[in-house]
Amino acid sequence: MTRSFILSAGIGDPALADPAMAAQFVTAAETAGVDLLLLGRHDSLLFDPQVIAAWAAPRVSRLGLVPLVSSRIAHPFHVARSLSAIDYLSGGLLGWCPVAQGGSAAQLADLVRATRALWDGWDDDCLIIDKESGRYLDTTKVRPSNYVGTHYAVRGPVNAMRPKQGHPVLVCDAASPFAVPGIDVVIAAEGQAFPAAARRLLRVDPDVDIAAMAVRFAAGEIDGLHVDLINPVVELARIGKALAPITQGRPSAGTLRERLGLPLTLRNIHEEIA
């Protein structure tokens, strides 16, 4: 299978919480062929990225929405529920990027584990929805998670369906690292230490030499780029154009996981603990 180049961009500008501006940003990112749009920055969270991701869900057809989820205020029970909903509403185009915002990396990892444990309380195929027989759900496919971690204890089952993608795509910003198995995408600057992940994106400035980056991708050094946008609409247009030779022709259908070739390897919490 050909490796697909991954283009990621992040917006930390508070203008993201202005719907007219947010609409422009989302359209510009889709047009530029962005795969992952990070909503918020680890050092700049003046709004709730999960609300913005939900608002953007009906507006995307291939763009992956990646809200930053801060362990400063998030609780796994709330996170599991809202991300499940956004994953369905976006048609399976959701990722998430947990960040510590001054908290500990251990707490952040625990937030990820607890949230996954809640999702794993429901099997993919638990819904029956048969009007004729009156059976809605196969109850043998739902169970309490009984998760007890270092910072969170959550019993479950969570009152939310398992996300459409099983788990949304897990993104780690090396600027706020956490150590759990099964990280899908890591974003790290040149020379920066980063946890193991299925895909590695290099953090670059908006004015980076795209041609040089394409060479590094072809050599297998990186799986794609992440750009922290300062002037989103202008920069997205330029980057999209410059990258067109390597981003064109990539698959545009399916869920974010399917498109990026990132199947869910951890299917439930028991695997993760074992």
């Binding site: 609300v51 509403l89 009152n159």
Partner: peptide, 30 residues
């Protein structure tokens, strides 16, 4: 903020689960 059911047994005949209201309302806003 709890699943319907009793002592870990989830109902088979009631329509659940549902999705998080804040996400639904934010999407409807759009």
């Amino acid at each position: 903020l709890q699943s319907r059911g009793v002592r870990g047994r989830t109902p088979e005949h009631l329509a659940m689960p549902t999705l998080d209201p804040m996400a639904l309302l934010s999407a409807i806003a759009s």
